[in-house]
Amino acid sequence: MKRILLTPDTEKEIDIDPSSAERHALETGTTLVLDKSGRVHKITHGGGRLLVNGKEVQLSLADPRNRRRNANAGNDSGRRDVKAAMPGKVIKVLVEPGQTVEAAAGLLILEAMKMQNEVRSPGPGTVAAVRVAVGDTVASGQVLVTLE
């Protein structure tokens, strides 16, 4: 079957023969795959992530029939959301709407586990909106700032 293999920065069309690999389910979330040369690969998945022989990777499959829609989804505006890479508490907001920022400029400061971390701009742009305020607790993946 035809599928698109997605990684965070690439996508590639592949053809999969689902019956090709010998699989042994282990405990929940872990499967062993024996390849043709007899090598054992241990694959654990959970929370949308994969560990392949201990290496954490971000891989997913998409159906080629949805490809066009996927491409369109990314193209609908020039806006970019800056998301929290980890949960934390907003200690300080360093920018305001309308402000122009350089790449890697500090946007705000998050605190977690007794450490403060600066969230930086992924590229140059203008701050369209600041979605959080000082004192807010944010979840991983929550939008903090929108750039345009």
């Binding site: 293999l5 090709s20 690999a21 795959v33 390849d35 690969h41 694959i43 994969l50 392949v52 022989n53």
Partner: peptide, 11 residues
């Protein structure tokens, strides 16, 4: 072969 194994699991 690791990639193939991973794809097999995803599929």
């Amino acid at each position: 072969s690791e990639l193939e194994a991973a794809i097999a699991i995803l599929a």
